[in-house]
Simulated scan of single mutants.
Amino acid sequence: MVTIKDISAACGVSVATVSKALNGYNDVSKATKDLVCKAAEQMGYFPNSQARALKTNRTYNLGVLFVDDAQSGLTHDYFSQVLDSFKTEAERRGYDITFISHNIGNKSMSYLEHCLYRKVDGVVIACVDFSHPAVIELVNSDIPVVTIDHVFNNRTSIVSANRNGVRELIEYAYNMGHRKIAYVHGKKSAVTESRLGSFYKTMADLGLRVPSEYIQEGAFHEPPATGAATKRLLELPDRPTCILFPDDFAAIGGLNVIEEFGLSVPNDISVMGYDGIYLSQILKPRLTTFKQDTKRLGKEAAVQLAHLIEQPLTSLTERIVVYGKFLEGASVKNLNEK
């Protein structure tokens, strides 16, 4: 294994100078830094993690707390993309990733205990029950934390522009001539509350009434739940002409039920999704949806968490909003055309 002594000999500078250059100290000239860093890269040098941990009092290990109700794990299309982006940026900054859970072998422990056991420098929290006592305990601890799609007053959060996304979808359906628009939303969460509030607000701004039966609870990433909700909507005497689903994957449950009823999309009924996952753009018909910027969500979470760890005295609690993009598909019929 290449050591800093080997780099020192190759560059003709002292070991101390090599160490300072590799760690970005300002009392080393740019020319010397470039020389040392280039040599380190060419020689395949990797810093000793244990020595680095002793020197910096950090482990360069980030925790990821990710638990969704559907237990889809990393097959969850939306969050897998967010976490992949988080992982890429974290690794670029020299950090490893550890998934946080309640269990290590046969031993049960809290999320905070697991973080302390693994000595993580910080944690990103996404897709969990944010009201769970074990999550609250971790958020209120001294460990740096960044949350995704949930806001705590004392923690930095990275959130999607959910209100804007829903508004764009509803306004599009309205401009296509739809006045009877239903919404199958996910289970109670900050995301659901934000989107549902935007749905009601947008409908009111457009002068549209929302019958209570047009609002149905399904679940994120669970086609069976959205399928059952869709069945209830289709059985109404005055059924909607357009249905907004909680996410693209869950929309599959609705599409299956619509087919079972002998109806076609968009000729008989229109549908819209949310997230803009790859699957939504290869469905027939292609789904009208709102694409979330998963790359920026994950990268921003890693950037902010690294900043909290490396520069705690200059870090401020922030709420960073990440905007997405409307994707027009072929799943919404234009009722304005005669």
Results as ranks from 00 to 15, higher is better:
V145N: 13
V145M: 13
V145E: 13
I148H: 13
H150K: 05
H150M: 11
H150V: 09
F152L: 09
F152R: 07
N153E: 15
N153S: 14
S157H: 00
I158D: 01
A161P: 00
A161C: 05
N162Y: 10
N164W: 05
N164F: 10
G165E: 05
G165K: 01
V166P: 06
V166A: 12
R167N: 10
E168V: 01
L169H: 10
L169W: 04
I170M: 03
I170Q: 04
Y172S: 05
A173C: 12
N175F: 15
R179L: 02
K180S: 15
I181N: 03
A182V: 08
Y183D: 02
V184W: 04
H185R: 13
K187E: 15
K187V: 14
K188G: 01
K188R: 13
S189N: 15
A190W: 15
A190N: 12
A190F: 15
V191L: 10
L196Y: 14
S198V: 03
S198K: 05
S198P: 07
Y200I: 10
T202K: 02
T202L: 08
T202F: 06
M203V: 11
M203N: 13
A204T: 12
A204Y: 04
G207Q: 01
G207N: 00
L208I: 09
P211R: 01
P211F: 00
P211M: 03
S212I: 02
E213C: 05
Y214V: 03
I215R: 01
Q216P: 04
E217N: 11
F220H: 08
E222K: 09
T226P: 05
G227K: 06
G227D: 06
A228H: 06
A229M: 09
T230P: 00
K231N: 14
R232M: 13
L234G: 07
L234P: 02
L236E: 00
L236N: 01
P237E: 15
D238T: 15
T241P: 11
C242R: 10
I243G: 12
F245P: 00
P246C: 10
P246E: 09
P246D: 08
P246V: 09
F249M: 11
A250R: 01
L255D: 04
L255G: 07
V257M: 10
I258C: 11
E259M: 08
E259H: 12
E260K: 07
E260S: 10
L263M: 15
L263H: 06
L263P: 07
S264G: 05
P266F: 01
P266Q: 04
N267S: 07
N267K: 13
N267W: 00
